[in-house]
Write a protein that binds this DNA or RNA. Structure first.
Lengths: 144, 144
DNA sequence: ATATAATCTATAATATTACTCGAAAAAATA
DNA sequence: TATTTTTTCGAGTAATATTATAGATTATAT
């Protein structure tokens, strides 16, 4: 299951993606509109900032804004920051590989391959979908 | 991430799948060969039994054996028993659907669709892969 | 100076996962 | 029938991860 952290991250990025031409938006504003616990959101935005997705500015008139085009922010990158690996088992992970605790001999593991396939299928979708896509869908759904 | 519960379940089913023509195998035997905490495995096997995958017999000479052909036991069914939903968000689940806590209005949610796609892709692979497939892969890998 | 707003470090609350305990029920066998 | 074997059952606990909160600090604008 996706953590709340990741959902909040996506929501925050969507809000900021809709706010592209405006001055930076404050944590409290984002927290309010999306009903995210403020202090929790604070941590999440910090992570996204440290990963280079957000620009932040302290002090009066400060806040957060996207550091890149919403078209170039893909779900897969967000999820890796907030939840870590995409794969369902560590030994099938590309970016967070490590041996499974329970696995005695990886070379003869019949399970791994399946989850490599699952990872690839998941990865394909998540690395094709951007914040811009989500915004587009939302606005389409609202107008219908 | 896949829980240990699910991994243990798969491993146990694989062991039992290799034991098809023999008399039932005891929990302690399975636990030993796969290095699974016995009491934990006990619970897992009970779940699998209640779901109809295993036959069990009490008393001396008793134990567990598969109730169906390993070809007909698919990863997706096991995972639903041990971990629940396949989807990454509850609102994208087929068998365990419910609304997301954080979701104010599902009808205009731009995130849901993506995870329905991910679910479908995952589901396809997991419902095509059986215990027999895993056994086959293992034996192939060993012989190489 | 003062107000604003992000940053940092720590910690509390809650939920989930992993595992354990002990006793009861069923079956075989001697 | 007594004994041993093995599953079944209900409950409980320990470990870990997730979610959330608190308070002080730093940067910036006016």
């Amino acid at each position: 299951m996706l953590s709340k952290k990741t959902k909040y991250a996506i929501k925050a990025l969507v809000v900021l993606g809709k706010n592209m031409d405006q001055p930076p938006m404050q944590i409290s504003k984002i927290a309010e509109t999306e009903r995210i616990p403020k202090k929790f959101l604070e941590q999440i935005l910090l992570d996204l900032r440290n990963a280079g997705f957000l620009y932040s500015k302290k002090g009066a008139g400060g806040g957060y804004s996207l550091n890149r085009d919403p078209k170039d922010i893909f779900l897969v990158s967000i999820m890796r920051i907030t939840d870590g690996p995409i794969a369902m088992i560590p030994c099938a992970s590309l970016n967070f590989y490590h041996k499974c605790d329970e696995c005695h001999q990886e070379s003869t593991c019949g399970i791994r391959d399946v989850f490599v396939d699952v990872r690839d299928a998941t990865l394909k979708i998540l690395s094709e979908t951007s914040i811009a896509d989500i915004i587009k869908r939302e606005t389409t759904l609202i107008s219908v």
